[in-house]
């Protein structure tokens, strides 16, 4: 193995639970139901999936949800905005912790 990530892993994802087939079946049944049309459309769920994929920085998920977003008719504008939502929340999450910094610094400062 030359790299930790291999693109062909994605096609063989189903094999990952070979040694625990009942758990695997439960997971993939659940996964399939989650992405079916519901109160949220399949397209909306795929955009959310893309946002989470970018957040967890999973290359398999980024490949899969990029393709699924395009096949659901999402535009590059929408997908790019989803990436900015991720960026805003990740950046905002760091920035809001600045409040802890400020409280600590103010307590220690004259």
């Amino acid at each position: 193995m030359d790299t930790y990530y291999d693109p062909s892993d994605l096609q063989q994802f189903g094999d990952v639970c070979k040694d625990a087939p009942e758990l695997g079946k439960a997971f993939f049944d659940y996964y399939g139901k989650i992405f079916a049309e519901g109160a949220l459309s399949g397209r909306e769920k795929c955009l959310m999936g893309l946002a989470v994929a970018l957040t967890v920085q999973c290359p398999y998920c980024i490949e899969s949800f990029t393709k699924q977003c395009l096949e659901q008719g999402s535009t590059l504008e929408e997908m790019t905005e989803a990436a900015h939502v991720v960026t805003a929340i990740r950046g905002g999450a760091s920035l809001v912790h600045g409040m802890q910094m400020r409280r600590m610094a103010e307590k220690l400062s004259m």
């Binding site: 459309s41 399949g42 397209r43 393709k67 395009l70 096949e71 659901q72 008719g73």
Partner: peptide
Amino acid sequence: GAFLPPGQEAA
């Protein structure tokens, strides 16, 4: 591009 179209009704 090199991908399939979305469902017709939703699109």
